[in-house]
Simulated assay, not measured.
Amino acid sequence: MLHKKRKLLKNQEGLTLIELLAVIVILGIIAAIAIPAIGNVIKNSRFNAIKSDAIQVISAAKLYVSENGVKSQLSYNDLKSYIDDQDSKLNTSHKANPQFSVSVSTNNSDGKTVYKFTGYGADGDVKIRFNNADLKTINAAKRSNIKPGDDGVYTIGK
């Protein structure tokens, strides 16, 4: 019995250096493919977080108008009680006094109220400038379809 175990142990072989090197090369190739893809996912999620905050501001403007009546221009001070801005990505450089607004107008053709957001948002290295962007434009915006400007800022709206 002991003789068989010794013979079994002698026949076992470890990995050769070439096999180990092949595994390391394969892992390196996988990492080279996966890391940029993960970086893209992170940037897209930051882009969508900023868009979400802009949509929240438009929703707050709708609540304000339903409670207080139509006002042509709504500022942060008008909307601050309607906005949950604890983790807001809008105007991160102006936390004490965010500089954004929502213009409110009535569409003459169908009588609907139109809300257009103007402001700036940043999350990490992703920055978005909103220029009179309505809800439809903000929802349709995708980072892959918009090229950032020379200053690295994406622009949504006209």
Rank of each mutant, 00 (worst) to 15 (best):
Q99E: 14
Q86V: 00
K10V: 14
A31W: 06
L15W: 07
S101D: 00
A22E: 01
L2I: 09
N97K: 08
V126L: 11
I26K: 00
T118R: 06
N44E: 13
I35G: 02
I24N: 04
S45R: 08
G39S: 13
L9W: 12
A133G: 01
D53N: 04
S52K: 11
K116Q: 11
K112F: 11
N139F: 15
I128N: 01
N11Y: 12
T106Y: 09
D134W: 13
A96C: 01
S109K: 13
M1W: 09
G69F: 08
A122N: 08
Y82V: 05
I30M: 12
N40E: 15
S109V: 06
N91T: 07
I42P: 06
H3G: 10
D134C: 10
S66R: 08
E19P: 01
R129S: 12
S72I: 00
I138P: 01
L2G: 11
P98V: 05
A22K: 00
L15F: 13
D53H: 00
A122Q: 11
K95C: 04
L15P: 02
K62R: 13
L9P: 02
A140L: 14
S72N: 05
K4A: 15
I146P: 02
E19Y: 04
Q73C: 03
L21H: 04
G124F: 11
T16H: 10
A31T: 09
L17F: 08
N132S: 06
G121I: 03
S101Q: 09
D85K: 00
A140R: 03
S88T: 04
I33E: 04
G124D: 12
